[in-house]
Amino acid sequence: MVIFLVWYLAAKLGLWSTYVLPSPGHVWDAALNMLVKGELLSALAISFRRICIGFGCSVLLAFLFSFLFVLHPGIRTNLDGLFNMLRHIPPISLIPLLILWFGIGETPKIIVIVMASFFPILLNIDAGLAGCDKKLLEVGQVLGFSKSRQLQSIMLPYALPHILVGMRIGLGYSLRAIIGAEMVAAANGLGYLILDSQAMSRSDKVIVGILFIGILGLLIDGVFSLVIKHLVPYSQEIGK
């Protein structure tokens, strides 16, 4: 609210030109105009689709590797060094290479999202599974559970709060990564919309794009918080 007030006053007093800082009213009008024209929603839909595909791939890969690590610890030992190196590489830095390999299509953007969101999801699933209460695992042992049954019936439900937190963080990273990727190598999407608006000297549209990214992030985060609250009402009990 304070930021909005400062922005409103700064624009009203004409401290900067409207080219640099358009007034909130101006931005609101631009947002309505972009919504009516469908420009904003179409960019949003394109970015959201990319996030869904990339994030979905990350979740699948993270589960696959986590399960492999639990069931075959040797695989973890072999991949640990590679994964530790890869997770420190900023996904955006891969774009030039990805464009050379795959062109400017969807593949580089999806790979960038996977690179951004895979590791936080993997690390959280892994931490959740590794932190499973040994006493509960002993219950499974006494009941004659196999290792995969232990994983399915005890470790996974126990790790669910961790997993959902990892997915929440991964989704946030996906959003950041796709906007970056769309600014460098795209002809549509929210990132492209912002960059294109800047090229057209439309700072009002740039601000609309930025605000929409924030709102999208807020919505995604809110939905995830609700899912966590309803899906794992026992999360407070875990670790007691």
Partner: peptide, 24 residues
């Protein structure tokens, strides 16, 4: 067929009382 009861209840926090009894 050996069953075991521990010092702590060791119930699965995500399951109801009945589901804990039928666990496994």
């Amino acid at each position: 067929n050996i069953g075991m009861m521990f010092q702590e209840a060791r119930l699965m926090p995500w399951l109801t009382c009945e589901k804990n009894i039928t666990f496994g």
